[in-house]
């Protein structure tokens, strides 16, 4: 009897815990070293190839409907000849306190036990709320049903669904690769090793500016990198607790902070 009571109490307590999970299975984290990123765009191509992102064409690009889950923003300061150009790759920040998640009325987006902000495409009804609430503008919408002219469709990755019309989507940290790595680790009866999971963007990065790993693993590269004094998070003042960590660019633009 007491056992049941304790169980109920525990359950209730966990249901009252903010964020619900006492401990996550993993806390997937990406570290972006802005001092190494040279803005080449290879990560964007990797994302297009891995995640079956459709190409929308000039007209829809003009309406800002391009699909890149990962974009490289470029900010330009100053006038000739003192011009400072800064690149920053922005993808879904997988916020631990994601504004988008509370917006969805049908649970199509939620937080899972890996610390990921996930989007379930087939559950989405397309209310746009998540995208409106998103502070990083990283969500993309299937405005039409997109077709791949044959034989371009042969390139489509079978590990990722081709999203239906009317569905919201976004960067998943290449969750299919996480699943595959976990699957392999399970077959071999071990945990996922550091560096075993590499999202397409991190894999392709020609400067190694993007590093991915499990923050809960103290031996992982990201766990060591987050102690870097250059660390900051995008729009941190909004208290969204993002899982993407940026390392400040080293640059003499007269704006650097203490």
């Amino acid at each position: 009897m007491a056992g049941i009571f304790d169980k109920v109490k525990d359950t209730l307590n966990s249901y009252r815990t903010p964020g619900y999970f006492k401990k996550l299975d993993h806390k997937w984290t990406m570290v972006v070293d802005l001092d190494m990123c040279n803005g080449c765009g290879a990560c964007v191509a990797g994302c297009y190839a891995e995640n079956n992102l459709p190409v929308v064409g000039k007209e829809d690009c003009g309406k800002s409907r391009a699909f890149s889950w990962l974009r490289i923003e470029r900010y330009v300061d100053g006038e000739y000849p003192d011009v400072k150009v800064k690149f920053i790759p922005v993808m879904c920040q997988h916020c631990m306190k994601a504004p988008c998640e509370i917006g969805c009325p049908v649970y199509a987006t939620y937080h899972n036990q890996d610390g990921l902000n996930v989007q379930v495409y087939n559950r989405c009804v397309g209310t746009f709320t998540c995208a409106t609430y998103c502070t990083y503008d990283v969500r993309r919408f299937n405005w039409f049903s997109y077709k791949w002219p044959k034989p371009l469709d042969q390139q489509l990755n079978p590990d990722v669904t081709v999203r239906e019309m009317g569905v919201m989507e976004k960067c998943t940290f290449c969750i299919q690769r996480i699943t595959a790595a976990k699957d392999k680790a399970k077959d071999e009866g071990r945990g996922v090793k550091d560096g075993e999971v590499l999202p397409a963007c991190c894999q392709s990065c020609p400067t190694n500016a993007l590093v991915f790993g499990d923050l809960q693993d103290p031996e992982s590269r990201v766990a060591k990198m987050v102690n870097n004094p250059r660390k900051y998070r995008l729009l941190e003042e909004l208290n969204t607790d993002p899982s993407v960590i940026y390392l400040k660019r080293v640059m003499n633009d007269g704006k650097s902070e203490e």
Partner: peptide, 24 residues
């Protein structure tokens, strides 16, 4: 009208279903 997939509008109502999934 503003929904992306209006044919699934009923998912936004709480009712017992085979998906065992309700609404947020």
């Amino acid at each position: 009208i503003h929904m992306g997939r209006p044919w699934n509008f009923y998912w936004s109502f709480p009712y017992p279903n085979t998906r065992q999934l309700w609404t947020s």
